[in-house]
Amino acid sequence: MPPPPYKVACSNCNLRELCLPSGLSEADARKLDELVATRRKVKRGAALFNNGAPFMALYAIRTGFFKTCILTEDGRNQVTGFQMAGEIIGLDGIVGDRHTCDAIALEDAEVCVMPFDRIEALSREVPALQSHVHKILSREIVREHGVMLLLGSMRAEERLATFLLNLVQRLHARGFSQSELVLRMTREEIGSYLGLKLETVSRTFSRFVEEGLVQVKQRHVRILNTAGLRSIVNASACR
C-alpha cells in the first residue's frame, strides 16, 4: 500500500517559482494554495501513472526524477522524455482524458497533485495561472520539436552533447552545479531517448572523455569543456 498523501501549501514551497506563476497578489497566492490537493510519494521504479489510465491531474515534481515512455508496436519500451523537480508532468492526458504514456520514477520522488478540474476553475479566477499553463503547453511543443530535430538530423556525438548541455542547464536553474551532474537514468535509457544503441552511447561518452570534454565516473559526469560541447552541437547548424 502506498503511503497516504498529505496536504501542503504552495506558498511555502521553494520550487513554486519554477512550476507556478510569479508576481501574484497575496489573495491570488492563497487561491493557488488550494490548487494542490496533496503530495504523493513515488518509489523508485514505480509508476506515477500508466498509459491508458484516466487523466485526472497534472503533477508538479517536488523531488526526484521521472522518465516517460511508451510501448512501441514491435514491443520496445521507447523513452520519450526525462522530467525533474520543478517541472510539470501529465500534460499528455489533456487531449483525450487518458494518459498516453507511462511515467516511471527513476529515484524515490515526491509530486504535488493538481486536479485538472481545479486548475480550470482557478484559471478563470487567476488569469496568471491560465497564462502559465499555456506557457507550459508551449514549452512542451518546443521540446517535442527539439527532439524531432535531435533524432532526425544529428549525429551521435551531437545528440549526446545536446542532451548533456540541456540537462545541466535545467539542473542549474534549480540551484545545482553548472558543470557537474549525476545521471539518474541508465545509458540504455539515454540511448532509447536519443535514438542510439547502448554501445553507441558508451562509445560516445568514451570519446568525450578522451577529448577532454567530460569526466565520467559511473553515473557522475563533470563537464570540463562546455564550449567544446557547444561547438559539437553548433557544427550541425553549419552543415
Rank of each mutant, 00 (worst) to 15 (best):
R62K: 09
G45R: 05
F65C: 07
L71P: 02
C101K: 12
T186C: 02
Y6F: 08
F176Q: 13
L229K: 05
F176H: 13
V201W: 00
C112D: 12
S138A: 15
T38K: 09
P3G: 08
L20R: 07
S202N: 05
S25G: 03
R207T: 02
A60L: 13
L122M: 11
K7W: 09
D97N: 14
E120Q: 11
Q215M: 08
L106T: 03
R44G: 10
G175T: 05
N77T: 10
S192I: 04
L194H: 00
S153Q: 14
D108L: 06
S177A: 01
L167D: 01
P54N: 03
G45V: 01
G175F: 02
I94D: 04
F82L: 04
R155H: 11
V142Y: 11
P2H: 07
I119W: 11
F205E: 03
P4K: 08
R62F: 11
R170L: 08
F65A: 13
I89S: 03
S131F: 14
P5L: 04
L91M: 12
T186A: 04
D33Q: 06
E211Y: 01
L149P: 07
L229G: 05
R239Y: 10
L24M: 09
R62I: 06
A47W: 14
G146E: 09
L48G: 04
R98P: 12
L151C: 10
G64E: 06
A128N: 13
P127M: 07
A9Q: 10
K67Y: 02
G212M: 05
L106Q: 05
V182T: 14
H99V: 13
L122S: 08
K197I: 00
A60S: 11
H220D: 09
A156N: 04
C10P: 11
E110I: 12
D33M: 06
N234Y: 10
E210S: 03
R230S: 14
S153H: 14
L224V: 12
H220Y: 09
L181Y: 03
R40F: 11
T204A: 01
A227F: 13
D97G: 15
S11H: 06
G212C: 00
T38F: 15
L213N: 07
G81W: 03
I104F: 03
A103Y: 12
Q218N: 10
E107H: 01
I70G: 08
E110P: 09
G52P: 06
A60Y: 13
M185V: 01
E120I: 10
I190C: 02
R30D: 10
A128W: 12
G23Y: 09
R159K: 03
L129F: 07
R184G: 15
R76A: 11
T80Q: 00
A27Q: 12
I89G: 01
N77A: 07
R40E: 11
E125C: 12
Q218P: 02
T80A: 00
P2G: 09
R16G: 07
T63S: 06
V201T: 06
V147R: 13
V42W: 04
L164T: 00
E158H: 04
Y193G: 00
